[in-house]
């Protein structure tokens, strides 16, 4: 076998490291502020979900199953699954995980939808963002944990930062696709009547792209859930940490209970967010 020549050595790792340390040194204050904002938001969600007692949350989610998913059977399934999570003793951890997911999705949408709109409005923006998004989605999820850890230390905040970055591509992509595939004549009609770009966006593009954006939100949420679980590796409290502990201690039963609780959460979140996109399609 012929070895790859040592002389050809691109020190990419070294470059990235030095860039990171530069950022750490000069942008420290900036990251502190971001971390603080993220922390406040997730704490607010946690406070709400941990404050409302389980006997209110469970019927509420059941109701959501009935009204949004439009199936009383699904409502029943939701309730049973939530009761099982409670019976495993994981209610609080499940609520913490849920808060992390919702807070992360909140930030993902805050970043992703405007980016998607920008991308739809400019071919150049699309040209730059598209390969970036492709790259982000093929990257193994835990790669995001390392820089997050460096900038924000241990705990919830870095886990969320990693989650936001990992989960944001689908909503950007589908907002872009949704807007770009809006009926061209509907957009032209709006413009022909003298609509401002803002009016075109809110009267035509966003409403008509809604089903597609909702699918994006659904995917982003599911990815956020997956990442939040991994985020427990750097200290985000929640169901993921239970799985991690169980693995370390080789407690199969406990790992299974925590694992299946995550699956239940996933099913509930998926069905509810998916119902938004379906409902919009029917009205068309």
């Amino acid at each position: 076998m012929i070895e790859f020549p040592d002389i050809v050595n691109i020190p990419l790792a070294a470059w990235i490291d030095s860039a990171m340390s530069w950022l750490l040194k000069h942008m420290d204050g900036f990251f502190d502020v971001i971390g603080l904002i993220i922390l406040q938001v997730v704490m607010a969600f946690e406070a709400v979900f941990l404050f409302i007692p389980w006997f209110i949350v469970i019927p509420l989610i059941g109701l959501a199953g009935w009204k949004l998913v439009k199936s009383w059977k699904m409502a029943l399934v939701f309730i049973v699954m939530l009761l099982m999570i409670g019976s495993f003793g994981y209610w609080d951890l499940a609520m913490r995980t849920l808060s992390l997911v919702i807070a992360s999705v909140f930030f993902s949408l805050l970043i992703g939808i405007p980016l998607g709109i920008t991308m739809a409005g400019s071919d150049r923006a699309e040209g730059i963002l598209k390969p970036l998004l492709d790259g982000m989605q093929t990257m193994p999820s835990f790669v995001y944990l390392i820089p997050a850890l460096m900038f924000f230390g241990m705990g919830k905040v870095p886990a969320m930062v990693a989650t936001i970055i990992y989960a944001v591509p689908p909503v950007i992509r589908l907002t872009n696709v949704g807007i770009r595939t809006v009926d061209r004549e509907a957009v032209e009609a709006s413009k022909a009547f003298g609509a401002t770009p803002r009016q075109v966006l809110f009267d035509v593009q966003l409403p008509l792209a809604k089903p597609s954006i909702m699918v994006g939100i659904n995917q982003t949420t599911m990815m956020a859930l997956a990442m939040v679980v991994i985020g427990s590796m750097i200290g985000a409290k929640g169901l993921g940490m239970e799985v991690l502990l169980a693995i370390n201690r080789i407690e199969v039963g406990r790992g299974f209970e925590a694992g299946i609780s995550i699956v239940f959460l996933a099913i509930i979140i998926d069905r509810i967010t998916f119902s938004f996109s379906e409902k919009n399609e029917k009205r068309k």
Partner: peptide
């Protein structure tokens, strides 16, 4: 924008209506 608003009306081949 003002000019389009006051002077024109346009009709399209595939109607260009807003389905929502």
């Amino acid at each position: 924008l003002q000019f389009r608003r006051k002077t024109f009306g346009m009709v399209f081949q595939h109607y260009g209506l807003l389905p929502h």
